[in-house]
Nucleic acid binder design. Structure first.
Length: 488
RNA sequence: GUCCCCAUCGUCUAGCCAGGUCAGGACUCCAGCCUUUCAAGCUGGCAACACGGGUUCGAAUCCCGUUGGGGACACCA
């Protein structure tokens, strides 16, 4: 059987380094077995998916040299397929319509949780007479489609790395497979597409192990032969709790790595180190070298911590060993000194320049991955440190939602925030100058932010929050609520 | 809370499946050498089999339990 694998990112945010990790493993496996690597965009969440995010993910994968052989396929363009497969499930009773309202479901979940019961759906609609179900659907009553799970026995799964995994069927929820808006959920779309695209090995994150019974049930109900499953350990944060890699504690956006001055080969190599380690010997290797002798079975099961120090060391070796001085000069120019970027910076510096010798002092913060920020400089008279941290956090959330990252747009956000918080624009922006440049007085803030770009800006804000002592999880929750209220 | 997964230096890992070397390498850190400084390079050093039971002549390796960590429990993926 030909090897066909896929990476299936969801375009709901920045291109995540975890996506690159999944893509790398899939691609390495495909190449090592003469197989095909497919790219599929899982844009079935209409509220959160965006074309901008999709484009960013494609760019990021190309930048890394993770080229796909087929695709990108877009799930939003395959809705008829999912619908017709759902009709088959409905016809033979493997799935059923659910007319329960969101309110009822929320209520039920709250209650179950409070009583520490299994929090799943209570299956009220499962035994609705077919005639009634048909009638209500025909009358246009909103509904979802749920998969009817077995109620007894055991689901026996097989994972390439872990072997056999067993789970009681009765512990598995009647998952919604088609939403009220006619879009499939992940589970349905993924199974239908994996079959339709002839995927032989599903290599994905460990977070999906718990959904595997649902997927196996779907494969069976649809009469498909299931592929081989291989669940990869999740990349972890470098903090005390070792939670799965998140942007709160670590840079996770692939574009951040690019903008902070990492080389694609080094990042790829670093990710490769986590899935293929040579006993002794060279840790610097190319994609081709990784592919040569790549074995899925060799991946170790512990969730690896993303160690930026080691990445830096590797990156340094690439910089030293793969370029002569001329080549490096080109690299630096392409990275930060393109004519356009330089001209934008010059426009900001010009009024503040007495000699060309001032250039370096004035603009250096635009040419580094991160400035040094000390806590004292972040202070504003009349504001507590915690308040400053909160304004940073509010702006961070605002900017995370922003697709259009220009000086004007950024300025609009600052003005809005200063109004709703009742702060002067001056007091609000003051700490941001320090966060961006390390200095209280520097080039115009909004334009500087545009030049730095969203990833560097957000990373700098996060650093500033950390410099102020961070925000506890509890307070973060409260802030989030307040932010939602302010943002409307 | 319930279920699932995982467990070797601070970190990434080799060794485990086919029990038997002072548990190997790399990053970080420290020291020395080299050197006009720094970096790089070279040499050396610190540092781990989570714990408790079994099985065995012998356990990092096989089995069970405990602890710890992670993940999942959505009309998100």
């Amino acid at each position: 059987m030909p090897v066909r694998v896929r990476v299936a990112p969801s375009p709901t945010g920045d291109p995540h380094v975890g996506t690159a990790y999944q893509a790398l493993v899939n691609l390495a496996f495909a190449r090592s077995r003469g197989g095909v690597f497919v790219l599929r965009i899982e844009d079935t969440d209409r509220a959160r998916s965006s074309r901008e995010s999709e484009a960013a993910i494609l760019d990021a994968l190309r930048w890394l040299g993770l080229d796909w052989d087929e695709g990108p396929y877009r799930q939003s363009e395959r809705l008829e397929l999912y619908r017709s497969e759902v009709d088959r499930l409905l016809a033979d009773g493997s799935a059923y319509r659910c007319f329960c309202t969101r309110e009822r479901l929320d209520e039920m979940r709250r209650e179950n949780r409070a009583q520490q019961r299994f929090p799943g759906y209570d299956r009220r609609c499962r035994d609705l007479p077919v005639a009634e179900s048909e009638r209500r659907a025909a009358a246009g009553e909103p509904h979802t489609i749920r998969l009817a799970m077995p109620t007894e026995g055991e689901c026996v799964m097989r994972d390439l790395l872990r072997g056999e995994i067993r789970r009681e069927w009765e512990l598995i929820d009647d998952q919604v497979i088609l939403k009220a808006d006619g879009y499939p959920t992940y589970h349905l779309a993924c199974v239908v597409d994996d079959h339709a695209m002839g995927i032989s090995h599903v290599i994905r994150g460990e977070e999906w192990i718990n959904s595997l019974p649902k997927h196996l049930r779907l494969f069976e109900a649809l009469g498909y032969e299931p592929p081989v499953f291989c669940h990869l350990p999740l990349l972890r944060n470098n903090d005390a709790n070792r939670s799965k890699l998140s942007k709160r504690r670590n840079p996770t956006s692939i574009t951040w790595f690019r903008d902070a001055g990492f080389l694609p080969g080094a990042l790829l190599n670093f990710l490769g180190l986590m899935v293929s380690s040579r006993a002794e010997g060279e840790e610097k290797f190319s994609l081709d070298q990784l592919v040569d002798g790549f074995r899925l079975e060799d991946i170790s099961l512990g969730g690896p911590v993303f160690d930026l120090d080691k990445l830096r060391w590797l990156n340094a070796r690439y910089l030293r060993e793969d370029y002569d001085a001329d080549g490096l000069a080109d690299l630096v120019r392409d990275w930060s000194m393109g004519q356009e970027r330089l001209a934008a910076i010059a426009a900001l510096a010009q009024p503040r320049l007495e000699t060309l010798g001032d250039w370096g002092r004035l603009t250096s913060f635009l040419f580094v991955d991160a400035p040094t920020v000390d806590r004292e400089k972040l202070a504003v008279k009349g504001l507590e440190e915690t308040q400053i941290a909160e304004t940073f956090q509010f702006m961070l959330w605002t900017l995370e939602r922003e697709q259009e990252f220009t000086a004007d747009v950024v300025q609009g956000h600052f003005r809005h925030l200063s109004e709703v918080l009742g702060l002067s624009l001056r007091d609000l922006t003051r700490p941001f100058y320090v966060a961006m440049s390390g200095e209280a007085a520097s080039l115009p803030l909004f334009q500087s932010m545009e030049i730095l770009g969203p990833d560097l800006v957000r990373a700098r804000i996060r650093h500033a929050i950390e410099a102020l002592g961070g925000i506890s999880g509890k307070r973060m929750k409260k802030l989030q609520k307040r932010f939602e209220a302010l943002a409307g």
